[in-house]
Design a protein around this nucleic acid. Structure first.
Lengths: 339, 339
DNA sequence: ATTTCAACCGAAAACGGTTTCGTAAAATTT
DNA sequence: AAATTTTACGAAACCGTTTTCGGTTGAAAT
């Protein structure tokens, strides 16, 4: 409990704290004898340098901030995991915070992170964020900063994303490949870039395969939820019996549709194939197990930290680099809901 | 970008940094005139006190560490959320780390948190942690410390838990109340305290209702997984057709059992009722929706932080308090898998 | 006119390290 | 033996705050 400091050690040994510091940090200008004396005593007293003092001197905390829409969310929790594990390798710790998809809160949480003097910030934008001054301010202050997943073209900075267009296209292509002739899409309002791009990818796949995009089986839910998926599923069962494939923009919507199909005694995948998006854990335990597109959160988190780390190094070395965007590849995972 | 410090402000205004500091911190011995001058300039220059210097002075970081077995885990993610939201109210941030249920890693992560000089630590023990010296060391160092969920009687400190015995008893009682006469239990090895207690609660409910505990329908899986639950479910369908109720110690096992029942065309809940444990999100979207016991992670996290905060205050004020254990109430949630 | 007492401000220590620079002693070269 | 270099150490500045403790004013009280 009795905090042992550099000064204390120097007093015990009767030398200056400069020498003690140098002995512990393996400076060349300290004799082997004194070095050993210092290190032995330091070990004996279980000396740990006071990190607050080190922070003050170096002006860095070795802590980064990770801010995202939700913590209780499979995808984002895999991102936390990826960021934390990667950060640890470089001696960094991660402060985690959530915006609850609220613009005002995003501003506040960003402020809180800056107040802690984190060495850098990783952010996934809130859904209703349409002004970006708070983000640009952070960047202009010179704080290393990386956007991931929910990004914006209006912000010039390093980013980590997936190719939603391509991913959605691949998912749709998968349905086509297994023989689906009439494919419905279940989605949210075309607000966020991700939704827009997935929708685009869906239509692209249809086009490239000479199929027509039919607006009447393009279902727009009020959100990304299970119940929104179920409502759409019900409509399909009731009014569009010729649909033999469903692409839902989220796993949750897909599972909602699955339940609707079950209740209408529509066999999956025999009568209708269903594919979701994200590869949440729960897709492995539905009946039938849900085909989906893997959106690798761990990899995204890992890449985001690595980019941020680069920025931190660049800042130290006073080098400027142009912003880049890393695209993490996605893969279609075929399970029992498509065949 | 040009960092504006107290000293800089004092130089511009031609006064001492003591006065500037006092003006900003509303000390009494500074005249209204100078106070205004200082505050105006501080606002104009967008002055933010350097938190590293403050940390060094106060020897506190306003950051706590949250260490738990897994991050990608519904229950634990709700705990992160509860801790983070509560901590924010008191100006604290939360560093999140995971042990991956590994004893060695637990030691390492604990060390890393201490190295960051966090003001306190919240820990949920790894499954294979059976020696507690690393934990006791932390406590003996005087670091505010609270155990939650996975705790140990061998560690004397503040704790936040649920009453597993009672919760399991209530779950079993629910099955009994709806008319189940032969209730199987699906569980893991009786290793962790949680498992032991839930098993105890199960037997207690049977006893209190004059029912016999039948060892042949007590299924021990190799872990808490979906597949372990499914294996048990299969055995029930094949060799114990008289079973009309299943209590699984985790939701995942319950859902595995559900799948097995489905594949054997056993109707849930008409022929067999199933109840799980934890109220993971996915219980709301299975078919049928799974009855379960709510294990309120958010509340647990909230209570854990509040306890830790008390400890931090007590440490500042040099008061010692006896350790206490807070028990967060659980409730049975009846859905479609029991009736 | 002297004492008393607020009111206001600043010097300096403290928090605990790191790092630059100067210098004395020892070792080496002329 | 003198000049030069190397080795080993310490003084002191610095990072940016907070806070104690005096001290200097001016106004009020005697």
């Amino acid at each position: 409990m009795s905090k042992v400091s550099l000064t204390k050690i120097s007093e015990i040994l009767g030398m200056s704290k400069s020498t003690v510091s140098k002995a512990l940090n393996n400076y060349a200008d300290v004799s082997p004898g004194t070095r050993k004396k210092v290190q032995d005593l330091a070990n004996e007293l279980n000396y740990k340098p006071n990190i607050f003092a080190q922070n003050l001197r170096s002006q860095e905390s070795k802590i980064i901030g990770l801010l995202m829409p939700e913590i209780v969310h499979y995808f984002f929790s895999t991102i936390i995991s990826g960021v934390a594990e990667t950060a640890e390798k470089y001696g960094y710790s991660v402060i985690v915070a959530q915006t609850k998809d609220d613009y005002k809160n995003e501003i506040k949480q960003l402020e809180l992170l800056l107040d802690k003097n984190v060495d850098g910030i990783l952010l996934s934008l809130a859904d209703d964020t349409i002004h970006f001054n708070h983000v640009k301010d952070v960047i202009n202050q010179g704080v290393p900063f990386v956007l991931f997943d929910r990004t914006s073209k209006l912000i010039d900075c390093n980013k980590v994303v997936i190719d939603d267009v391509k991913a959605a296209q691949m998912a749709t292509q998968h349905l086509i490949d297994i023989g689906c002739k009439k494919i419905a899409i279940i989605r949210n309002q075309l607000k966020s870039q991700g939704t827009i791009d997935r929708h685009k990818g869906f239509k692209k796949a249809l086009l490239e395969n000479g199929m027509v995009y039919d607006k009447s089986i393009d279902f727009e839910g009020r959100d990304f939820s299970f119940s929104a998926g179920k409502i759409a599923g019900n409509k399909i069962c009731e009014s569009h019996k010729d649909v033999d494939g469903i692409f839902a923009l989220t796993d949750l919507m897909a599972i909602g549709a699955l339940e609707a199909l079950k209740e209408h005694n529509v066999a999956v995948p025999d009568q209708v194939s269903v594919i979701g998006f994200s590869n949440w854990f729960l897709t492995q335990i539905t009946t039938p197990h849900l085909s989906t597109v893997d959106q690798p959160g761990f990899e995204i988190g890992k890449a985001a930290f690595n980019l941020l780390y680069q920025e931190i190094q660049n800042k130290k070395n006073n080098v400027k680099e142009a912003s880049k965007t890393i695209v993490i590849p996605t893969t279609v995972i075929s399970r029992d809901s498509t065949k």
